Amino acid sequence: MDIMEGGDVEKTVGYNSLGHALEAATLGVPHGSDSAALGRDEDTALVMKKVINAYGGNPDLMNDQYGMSDSIGRMTAGYIDDLNYSATNFAGSGDAYNREELFGSGRNDFGDLQTKKFLLTVGRNEESYEIASSVQQVYTASGISGHADQSDAMAFAKRSMWFHGALDEARTEQIGKDFAEEADKKNMALEQQAEWRKFAVGAAVAGGVAVATGPVAVAAYPIVVPLAEQAGEAVKTGSSNEIAEWLKENEYDNSRQAVATQQDVIHAGQVAAATPILNYLDSSDVSEEDRRNFIDTLQGVYNDGRMATNTDNAPGQ
Results as ranks from 00 to 15, higher is better:
Val135Ile: 10
Thr115Cys: 04
Phe156Trp: 13
Phe156Tyr: 15
Ala148Gln: 12
Ala148Val: 11
Ala157Thr: 08
Ala132Thr: 11
Thr121Ser: 13
Gln114Ala: 15
Ser128Tyr: 06
Gln136Glu: 11
Ala153Asp: 08
Ser151Trp: 04
Ala153Pro: 03
Met154Arg: 15
Glu127Cys: 02
Gly146Pro: 06
Ala155Asn: 13
Ser145Ala: 13
Val135Lys: 00
Leu119Asn: 07
Arg124Gly: 13
Asp149Ala: 11
Leu119Trp: 05
Leu119Asp: 08
Met154Gln: 15
Gln136Val: 14
Thr140Ile: 11
Gly143Ser: 12
Gln137Trp: 06
Ser151Gln: 14
Ala132Glu: 11
Ser133Ile: 05
Gly146Val: 05
Lys158Asp: 05
His147Gln: 05
Phe118Thr: 11
Thr121Glu: 04
Ser128Ala: 13
Asp152Ile: 04
Met154Tyr: 06
Ala155Trp: 03
Gln114Tyr: 01
Glu130His: 02
Met154Phe: 09
Asn125Gln: 13
His147Glu: 03
Tyr129His: 15
Gln137Gly: 11
Val122Tyr: 00
Glu126Asp: 10
Tyr129Cys: 05
Gln137Ile: 15
Val135Ala: 00
Lys158Val: 09
Glu130Phe: 00
Ala141Glu: 10
Ala132Pro: 07
Ser142Met: 09
Gly146Ile: 07
Ala148Asp: 12
Asp152Val: 06
Val135Gly: 00
Gln150Tyr: 03
Met154His: 06
Lys117Arg: 14
Tyr129Gln: 11
Asp149Ser: 01
Tyr139Thr: 04
Gly143Ile: 09
Thr140Gln: 07
Ser133Glu: 01
Gln136Trp: 04
Lys116His: 10
Ala157Trp: 02
Arg124Asn: 09
Val138Tyr: 04
Gly143Trp: 07
